[in-house]
Computed example of a mutant assay.
Amino acid sequence: MKTFKKIVYWSLIIFAVIQFIPVDRTLKPVNQQENFVTVFNTPKNVQQILKKACYDCHSNETVYPKYAYVAPISWSVQHHINEGREHLNFSEWGKFNSDLKRNMLENSINAVKDYSMPFPGYVAQHPEANLTKAERVLLVNYFEEILKSGKY
């Protein structure tokens, strides 16, 4: 029993100490001239889908949930956000070259079609991000229209 109390005690100490390890949650300002929804004058219904299912990880407009402020969960959340922005950042769309934009659109189409996005772990914590079949079709069609136009 003495050993168990020591384990609990030190576990609590470690948990308290790791709360002081910082996670950079700084959001870059969004230049609307580079923002995907502005560049394409995206219809409101598509904007709503993007905002609820994509923007937390794929933009500079992340809304951090309360659990994202507790280590070690905060580390995992920030890692996923950084990785998401690395693959596609809607807030910085205007900065990318056309080959990269085409590639991001193609990857987005595939990810939405095969249900790998939004990320299942994200959907588990954000049920509103679970896209319906109709929303997926709408998003895929929208991205495909942009691809076909060649004006990305």
Rank of each mutant, 00 (worst) to 15 (best):
I109F: 04
V140W: 03
N41A: 11
P127G: 00
K28W: 07
K2N: 08
Y152R: 01
K113G: 06
V77W: 04
I109G: 05
N41Q: 11
Y9I: 11
H126T: 08
G84Q: 06
A68W: 00
R102A: 14
K66L: 15
F96V: 09
F15N: 11
P22D: 04
D56K: 07
T132E: 00
A53M: 02
S98Y: 10
T3R: 12
N31C: 01
P127E: 00
H80Y: 14
I73W: 11
E92N: 14
E86S: 13
K6T: 13
A134T: 05
F4C: 13
N82F: 05
H126Q: 07
H87C: 07
L100S: 15
V77L: 07
A68Q: 00
Y122L: 07
L27G: 06
L139Y: 06
T3L: 12
H80E: 15
F40M: 02
K95P: 08
A68H: 00
A16H: 01
N31L: 02
F20A: 12
N60L: 03
Y142M: 07
Q47W: 11
P72L: 06
N110Q: 14
D24G: 08
T3P: 05
S98N: 13
F96H: 09
N41R: 09
K28C: 06
R85C: 05
F143K: 10
I13D: 07
P118T: 03
C57N: 04
Y69K: 09
L88W: 08
P65Y: 00
N89F: 00
H79I: 12
S11F: 12
G121R: 01
K28V: 06
S76D: 13
T3G: 08
K28T: 07
I7N: 11
Q48T: 15
G150W: 00
N107E: 10
E86N: 13
P29K: 14
C57F: 05
E128T: 09
K44H: 15
E34Q: 14
N107S: 14
D24H: 06
V39L: 03
S59Q: 01
Q78Y: 04
K113R: 15
Q125S: 06
E144M: 11
L27V: 06
P22C: 04
Y9G: 12
A111T: 11
P72H: 07
K28G: 07
V70G: 03
V37Y: 04
K44Q: 15
E86R: 14
P22Q: 05
I146N: 09
N31F: 02
E128C: 01
K28I: 04
L27T: 05
T38V: 10
K52F: 01
V77S: 03
S91H: 04
N41G: 10
F4S: 15
R136S: 01
S149D: 05
K51T: 13
Q48N: 15
V77I: 09
N103C: 14
L100T: 15
M117H: 13
K2L: 09
S116W: 02
Q78N: 15
I109K: 10
V70Q: 02
Y152F: 02
T132F: 00
P65D: 01
